[in-house]
Design a protein around this nucleic acid. Structure first.
Length: 487
RNA sequence: CGGGAUGUAGCGCAGUCCGGUAGCGCACCACGUUCGGGACGUGGGGGUCGCAGGUUCAAAUCCUGUCAUCCCGACCA
């Protein structure tokens, strides 16, 4: 088989790019830093959306949609928020073009009175609306999610992981009490963790961000952090407790039971197409993409094999009912009956596209009442009997889902360790992975570690609660925190 | 935004140093043989060489600018 994908160990960046390209997930667009999501990539994202959306509905949320454009004045109402996003905004300044010999130019006459910002996130425009929606405690809580695209003018981009425009969901909730808002932020973090682990088969660490890594405008940022195969961490989702910051900035108050007018408490939370990048980097191998069954747009592909027309007819008659049988069992199945490709070519294509299970059916199988089943994750092949195929496949899909998670979990656990001295830390961080170490809680120590080792505190973990001494300053530390180099 | 590399057919590349009117592999089209791990033969179609200037009788090739991509930094809820 012609090798089309770079070895992971040789050049991880190139490997990642090869996997994305060969699986036809996405391409670079003509616009710097943006991407074209191809049907294969988009259906993967749609499956993620569907599962997440269901989970949001089950936790009482509704979908809505707010404008793409945010007036500049809105963005600047919350001081920390605007400071965090000011350096990465796409700004609309004019409304039309005019003809100029053979081409067009921006019409200077059309300059806008107030510039519009293409949303980098929607807190401001949503809280401006919430002001009018909320008067009484009876109007609360508001539990809204929106599926949208946002733009952040990044300096350096990477397909799926960091693009200038990306697709995401952003939840924005409003609550009467602090404890209710905190509970919401924590609840949504758990939703993300469940989704990452049960659907993406991607194990994650959870915790809160340090002040320096916090979302601009948040009081607390909760996050899920995953570990990629090259030992770097990926921030896979965040959930923010926003306190009353946005309520203050947009003057959103409600009259409580006690008659008092009070500021509303807020949360926001989001995951993006970055998750697709995380999924790719968690499971894929040197033969290309590997998709966990629960999210695979096509879970099973059937490849019929024939030589003559007679064989074709015979094989197709044998294979076609299997499609129906699997569909009835709730399996997403495709019969690859294209006659312009040879079986070997199809095998390679399905492999590089990450389809979890392949069933091959040839004259030999028809004669013996068999099927050949091949697993994408392990590349193992097995001859099985035709009867009872639906049960076998549904069972195998479940097994693959579990094993993908187990393997990823073991990998993460093997790359997670405690370190007590800064010398050891410097050495260990070179090997990648997660490191739990003691930190004195100061910005100075945190930024010194970042400068000297390129490692950041991914989160203040809830896995540890034992005090100790900071590995850098020797000052007291309340608990170990999670360090890693990250994307 | 700094350092490095690259940009030539849908994809991957050679040609650039030393200027002379564009080539290879894959893919695509036709026909035939093939078909259980990316088939083969024969014939065929497709490119103003990223873009814009300049030098020259002549530019993919030299010069200037510009745009984009990749890698390393800086930056990054």
């Amino acid at each position: 088989m012609a090798k089309k994908i770079t070895n992971r160990s040789e050049d991880y960046s190139q490997w990642y790019l090869d996997v994305v390209k060969e699986a036809k997930l996405a391409d670079h667009s003509p616009v710097r830093g943006c991407m074209i999501i191809r049907p294969n990539g988009f259906s993967l994202w749609e499956n993620m959306k569907r599962a997440l959306d269901q989970m949001f509905k089950e936790t009482g949320h509704e979908n809505a949609y707010f404008p793409l454009f945010i007036p500049k004045s809105f963005l600047s109402k919350e001081a920390q928020h605007v400071e965090g996003f000011a350096k990465e905004c796409a700004v609309v300044t004019h409304s039309r073009l005019r003809s100029i010999d053979g081409g067009v130019e921006v019409d200077p006459e059309s300059r806008l009175d107030e510039e519009l910002i293409v949303r980098p996130t929607s807190e401001t425009i949503i809280w401006d609306a919430y002001r009018d929606w909320i008067q009484s405690y009876r109007d609360l809580p508001i539990l809204i999610n929106q599926w949208a695209n946002v733009v952040r003018w990044e300096m350096r981009t990477r397909l799926f992981l960091r693009t200038m425009e990306f697709l995401w969901q952003e939840g924005h909730t409003a609550h009467a009490t602090k404890s209710e808002a905190v509970e919401e932020a924590e609840k949504m973090l758990q939703v993300y963790k469940t989704f990452a682990e049960e659907y993406m088969a991607m194990p994650v660490k959870t915790g809160v961000k340090t002040a320096s890594e916090r979302f601009a405008g948040a009081v607390d940022t909760y996050c899920i952090e995953a570990l990629m195969q090259d030992g770097k961490a990926l921030q896979a989702g965040t959930s923010h407790f926003l306190g009353q910051n946005f309520a203050k900035a947009f003057d959103v108050r409600f009259q409580d039971r006690d008659g008092e007018h009070k500021l509303v408490w807020a949360t926001s939370w989001g995951v993006s197409t970055r998750l697709v990048g995380g999924l790719i980097m968690t499971h894929s191998d040197d033969n290309g993409l590997v998709i966990p069954p629960k999210l695979a747009p096509v879970q099973v592909v059937i490849v019929p094999i024939w030589r003559s027309d007679d064989e074709q007819q015979e094989v197709m008659e044998y294979a076609t009912p299997i499609v129906q049988e699997l569909k009835e069992a709730g399996v997403s199945v495709k019969l690859d009956d294209r006659d312009n490709y040879k079986p070997g070519w199809k095998f390679a294509e399905h492999e590089v596209q990450g389809i979890p299970i392949r069933i091959a059916v040839g004259p030999r199988d028809v004669k013996n009442g068999n099927l050949e089943i091949a697993r994408r994750d392990t590349l193992e092949k097995e001859i099985v009997t035709r009867s009872g195929i639906a049960d076998r496949i549904t069972g195998l899909l479940e097994t693959i889902q579990q094993e993908l998670f187990q393997r990823a979990k073991e990998r993460m656990d093997n790359q997670t360790r405690n370190v007590d001295s800064y010398e050891e830390f410097k050495k260990e961080i070179e090997r990648g992975g997660f490191i739990y170490a003691h930190w004195d809680g100061t910005d100075e120590t945190e930024s010194r570690i970042k400068e000297e080792t390129k490692a950041t505190i991914r989160c203040i973990s809830d896995e540890f609660d034992q005090p100790g001494t900071c590995m850098v300053s020797g000052k007291p530390s309340r608990r170990r925190v999670l360090f890693a180099r990250s994307y």
